[in-house]
């Protein structure tokens, strides 16, 4: 039997091309050993869109490979090389959590926060675009935009990221109202739980918040080589991002959808996890 002429979107499902849909058999019986056992994040590029990662900070473990910043002048955003310093400490905290779970990742720091607050939504957007262009496999976005005007642009770039197999890990914002990209369906949206274990995380089948990870009293790196203890969804997201980096280093080429599936399969058991 021959396939009728199919629209392009159906082509992958035609008999002739269906072998491309084959996935690892182990997807059926995953455990954490299969998901990331022995994985270090090696070969995985992770972008941190934030306040700029501090290069020499001990928590970053020398894994920072490039620092850029987005400059916005008259609504025109350009990506320029940046000094590897942290405006607040927040980016370093996030990078440190990712490196803590996946010590051999390559960190790309994209500074989208700065003194010029006007146009910061535009900076965020341009930073996201730049990181997708660089071919990073995962991004940590512990920030969000509320600009209604930018909604369609964010939607477009987040779709692009998804189609290029970039896992966007986003901290959800507890403040009411529109907030994106954390509420978009293709991203990994993360909120905090209080179990002090970087590998304890939950899958929530009721979106928009699909993941819960440690975000209460988390020891973090802060600016100027310092450390502190912090609470916020900002610190939950990089835990998921670090685990995503591990999975991708062990199973290169998994799509964001597949990574979500793996994560959901090996998530902490809500019935037996205490704390």
């Amino acid at each position: 039997m021959t396939d009728p002429i199919l629209p392009a979107w159906s082509e992958p499902f035609a008999l002739a091309s269906r072998d491309k849909l084959l996935r690892p058999a182990a997807m059926q019986k995953m455990d954490r050993e299969w998901a990331w056992g022995g994985a270090t994040g090696s070969g995985v590029k992770v972008a941190i869109l934030d306040s700029g990662v501090e290069a020499g900070h001990p928590v970053v473990g020398g894994r920072l490979v490039q620092s850029v910043a987005v400059q916005v002048i008259d609504d025109e955003a350009t990506v320029v090389p940046d000094d590897p310093i942290d405006m607040y400490g927040h980016a370093t905290a996030c990078a440190g959590i990712v490196v803590g779970l996946a010590p051999e990742v390559e960190i790309y720091s994209v500074r989208v926060l700065g003194a010029d607050l006007r146009g910061k939504g535009a900076a965020f957007l341009a930073g996201l675009e730049w990181a997708v262009e660089q071919g990073v496999q995962a991004m940590n976005l512990s920030l969000s935009s509320k600009s209604e005007r930018l909604f369609p642009f964010f939607h477009e770039i987040v779709d692009q990221a998804y189609f290029r197999n970039v896992a966007l890990v986003c901290a959800v914002n507890n403040v009411p109202g529109l907030s994106f990209p954390s509420t978009f369906s293709s991203v990994f949206s993360v909120a905090a739980h209080s179990i002090p274990d970087p590998e304890a995380f939950f899958y929530n089948p009721s979106p928009p918040v699909e993941w819960g990870a440690w975000g209460v009293d988390v020891p973090i790196g802060w600016k100027d080589g310092g450390t502190t203890v912090a609470t916020g969804n900002s610190f939950a997201a990089p835990h998921i991002c670090g685990l995503v980096a591990r999975i991708l280093s062990k199973h290169p080429g998994l799509t964001p959808f597949e990574v979500k599936t793996v994560l959901a399969a090996v998530a902490s058991d809500p019935a037996t996890t205490r704390g």
């Binding site: 927040h90 926060l113 512990s142 920030l143 969000s144 509320k146 901290a171 914002n173 507890n174 403040v175 907030s179 009293d217 802060w222 502190t228 203890v229 912090a230 609470t231 916020g232 969804n233 900002s234």
Partner: peptide, 8 residues
């Protein structure tokens, strides 16, 4: 960032 935060 519009992101709530606590430090101890």
């Amino acid at each position: 960032t519009g992101q709530p935060l606590a430090l101890s």
